[in-house]
Design a binder for these strands. Structure first.
Ligand SMILES: NC(=O)c1ccc[n+]([C@@H]2O[C@H](COP(=O)([O-])OP(=O)(O)OC[C@H]3O[C@@H](n4cnc5c(N)ncnc54)[C@H](O)[C@@H]3O)[C@@H](O)[C@H]2O)c1
Ligand SMILES: NC(=O)c1ccc[n+]([C@@H]2O[C@H](COP(=O)([O-])OP(=O)(O)OC[C@H]3O[C@@H](n4cnc5c(N)ncnc54)[C@H](O)[C@@H]3O)[C@@H](O)[C@H]2O)c1
Lengths: 297, 297
DNA sequence: TCAACTTCGTGAAGTCCTTCACGAAGTCGT
DNA sequence: ACGACTTCGTGAAGGACTTCACGAAGTTGA
């Protein structure tokens, strides 16, 4: 009955390199580059896998999506594979980038050599702070935000990097899209919304740390799993850390604390579901896969 | 025949929250924090989903792993959920962090307020450069690497952040692990190997950009994709015995160019090609995303 | 040329994650 | 108190990705 939906999957149609594989190609590329620098000629899936922290089966599967370019009994030709992956990633031509928000983080990124060495050319740095305009970072001068459109068009820029505070991110994003940018790398801790056709990737330090924290919490198994108290309506002002940045315009249409008590009594009732339900069960389990390769989509 | 291996999977056993869900909890946490700051009392899965760039079904499914704490017809209690997620992520107690490599990137991270605001306390900054020792960033002084062990123990540090050049990363990692660190966030473009029980997550700018580049390449469908030249038959001769040691021990047993001088200028320095990119050069890469569920293709 | 190896390529099976869909539980207005 | 509505919780179905396992293709040495 779902045969019809097959069409959707087909949309991804040709080329069809799985996303998970695409995310690993850069890894292989790095290892191959390193090997090439050492004049290594060929490499087996096993060796490549070890260097990339991967399994050989996965490597072979991944590479098979690019075609059958290995030599049985030998391995893959380093130089050839290098070129093949670079081509697949669209790195044959330099890609231009604009970076918006030259603050702490923006500075570090703008001066990052790995940018250029990988074929990404930063052609513009933009900021609203007058004090930063004109300053040069990594050989590129900081320009006022207003020059965005002109710079993007003149340099045929397709990738934008956002390093502004969260509050400004969506506006900057919208403007980048209007200017013609179709790929965005966002460092601001906020989910951007963009029209279809525009890709967004997010890098979030806090998220990474919190994920580590999760696993950390399970390592020292302190199974003193106190039963969770019922979700009382009573304000408990939990911890969690108050973050300074909170300016998400999409947080509308939610229940607000009534300044004047319109519906008081009714509100406070229902203590919510008990734990009766058969399922769920969120006890604490010893886990710790410990493997380095765990991912999620 | 695979039934037996079930044991391995069972290790993940009962009640554990799926990795994919864990990776999204920080996202919800952020949105909830923002809501709480505005005195919003309850939020529906639909609203939460929109703010987090997610679907409501996914949100409900994710939250269901923590237990059934929603109220039908109403939604989730913001404060309660906030506390519940924070607890699940092990954020009830401050987590301490050491950061190694206070260079460009390290500086930015060390001064990042988002660290502290989310319950992560940077208790030490370490570097080998004598010029940096003593300098204070974000209220923390840079200490010499030798103090790592003492600092880690004294402060019960469990998380380490690596911002050194790739060439030094594995050594730093090893030392961190020896000192007692069990979670590492790695910004150096190299795959670290660690003993089981230690978690590693990587963040790599270059990988993100290359993934964007891949999709970018498919957007402007320039089908002028010249047929790939034949897989270049390699005259390769496998190395008989040992192969020279190199920066990365895992790159052993690979074919080397015959008569080629072992150490080719790659020693140590690694990246930094600086000049007009092209292909040659640096090492970049490393991957592992774990997130980004919101793309449309 | 042949036998012994090595290593790729890939169907198939298994695991994990996402999406669907709908009953249950609760709220709200009258 | 009741009927109309909301919104959660969750089994089930479907996909996506990973791992297995083994035949095929190619290499090396005698
Ligand atoms: N510093 C880090 O290590 C780090 C880590 C993770 C995430 N982040 C995130 O990256 C972003 C930047 O962090 P930061 O530490 O560099 O902050 P910052 O305040 O040092 O820099 C922000 C810069 O953006 C500029 N800016 C503000 N509004 C702008 C606008 N509308 N258009 C263009 N430029 C604008 C400011 O002038 C400033 O130069 C924040 O969202 C932060 O949460 C930073
Ligand atoms: N700068 C960026 O935006 C950026 C982005 C992505 C990844 N990275 C990666 O992050 C790492 C750091 O980048 P960076 O631009 O800050 O480089 P950097 O050269 O500015 O800083 C490196 C720092 O590490 C210190 N260091 C070197 N060896 C060390 C050792 N053995 N122990 C302790 N400290 C040591 C150096 O003294 C220096 O202070 C690199 O691996 C880089 O590839 C950087």
């Amino acid at each position: 009955m779902t045969e019809l939906r097959r069409a959707a999957g087909a949309a991804r149609g040709r080329s069809s390199v799985p996303e998970a594989t695409v995310a690993r190609l850069p890894l292989y590329l790095r290892v191959l580059t390193s090997l090439a620098d050492r004049a290594v000629r060929t490499v087996s899936s096993e060796t490549l896998a070890k260097a990339a922290g991967m399994t050989s089966a996965k490597v072979r599967k991944d590479l098979s999506y690019l075609g059958s370019y290995g030599t049985r009994g030998v391995g893959y030709d380093v130089d050839f594979l290098l070129g093949r992956i670079a081509a697949e990633l669209g790195l044959t031509e330099d890609r231009t980038v604009v970076l918006v928000g030259v603050g702490n983080l923006g500075h570090a990124l703008a001066g990052y050599a790995g940018f250029r060495s990988r074929g990404f050319r930063v052609v513009a740095l933009l900021d609203v702070d007058p004090d930063r305009i004109g300053e040069s970072v990594g050989g590129v001068a900081v320009s006022p935000l207003d020059e965005m459109e002109a710079l993007v068009e003149r340099n045929q820029v397709t990738i934008g990097v956002i390093c502004t505070p969260a509050a400004a991110a969506q506006a900057v994003c919208d403007r980048l899209v209007s200017a013609g940018i179709t790929s965005i790398l966002n460092f601001a801790p906020i989910a951007l919304s963009v029209p279809v056709g525009v890709d967004v990737r997010k890098v979030d330090l806090a998220v990474e740390l919190q994920i580590l924290s999760f696993h950390e919490a399970r390592k020292r198994s302190a199974p003193a799993t106190g039963g969770v108290a019922a979700p009382t309506r009573s304000p408990g002002r939990r911890a969690g850390g108050r973050s300074g940045e909170s300016d998400d315009p999409r947080l509308a249409m939610v229940t607000r604390a009534p300044t004047g008590p319109p519906t008081l009594g009714t509100r406070g009732t229902g203590p919510l579901v008990g734990t009766t339900g058969g399922t769920s069960g969120a006890a604490t389990g010893a886990v710790t896969g410990a493997k380095t390769g765990g991912e999620a989509s």
